[in-house]
Each structure stands twice: as structure tokens, then as C-alpha cells.
Amino acid sequence: MIRDWLIQKVLPRSLWVYHTNCGACNGCDIEVLDVLTPYYDAERFGIKVVGSPRHADALLVSGPMTRQTAPAVRRVYEAVPDPKVVFAIGSCATGGGMWHDTYNVLGGADQVLPVDFYVPGCPPRPEAILHGIATALGLTPKEVHALHAIQEADEVEIEELAEEQRLVHERE
């Protein structure tokens, strides 16, 4: 698809990001700040934080999507010129965190925006955010995969479950 091709072209170059807090406790925002310090230095990948979504290539979303912020975040997303990528930083943005079912929260960022990359953690270490960026840029491989283990009746066995053995689980 042309969008994917454009993202492949754009991502390895200088990525300008706009950071949106849509209800985070500020833990994740502090870690994003850490990533920009000389110690972690995300700028060596060409990353720069900009003050306006109209200048950005990527949107960094932290925090659960609250009812109040959802329309504003949607407008911010629409203001980012195409092609754009969305990073969800922190457990709140990836799945709603522990607020996933509270009355004022819609859920994770993917309830409102099409999220391209998730960095779970509460808050994620600065290294985890760097790993997320590096994985999105194709510099490092993805480490995480689904865990499946089964305990048998007679001898205990740990093995990969086949696809058809897994429970079907719907998510709220």
C-alpha cells in the first residue's frame, strides 16, 4: 500500500514527533523527557520533538483516552500531515491500563486513533521507549511474543499451544 511505502521511506529519516498527553499521570511524559536527554539521546536517530502537530511526522500518545480529551486528540491526529505514525506509550495508552473500564475512560489510544506501535510499561523505561523507536525504525528485532503454557494431568508439560487449542477470548 502506498501509505506503508511512504512510511518506510519517511521513518528511517528524521522523525519529528508531537507528544500528546490524553490523560496520563505524567509518569510516561517524564520518561519521554528522559529519552530526549543527552544520556539516552533519541536525537541521534534524527528524532525531534516539535511544538505543533502540523510539523510532525509521528504522534506520541500517552495516557488512557478519556472522554474529555478524545475529540481533541482526534483533531490533533487529523492535523498531522500524511503519512503519519502513532506511537502509544505506556500501559494506559496501549490498553487503558488500570483505568480501562472507568466511567470517564474510553480505553486505550486505539479506541480513537489507528495506533501503529505500542510500548507497554508503567511507565516504560526510557530504554523501552528507545527500543520501541528502534524497532519501529527497523534497527532492532521485536522481542515480545505471546506466552502459552499447558500443565498436563500426569506429567507436567510446557509446550506451545496449537492455534486451535487456544481459547477464543473477546476483549472489552
Binding site: A88, T94, G95, D110, D116, F117, Y118, V119, P120, G121, P124, R125, E127, A128, I129, H131, G132, T135, A136, K142, E143, V144, H145, A146, L147, H148, A149, L161, R166, L167, R171
Partner: peptide
């Protein structure tokens, strides 16, 4: 801690 993924619903699950 290197949990970043592009498909959170398939990768971040334990059964």
C-alpha cells in the same frame, strides 16, 4: 522490559 510491538493484541497475551 523490551515489550514494544506493533500488534499488542496478539503479542501481549499469556494463556
Amino acid at each position: 522490559f523490551e515489550l514494544s510491538t506493533d500488534d499488542v493484541h496478539d503479542d501481549m497475551i499469556g494463556e
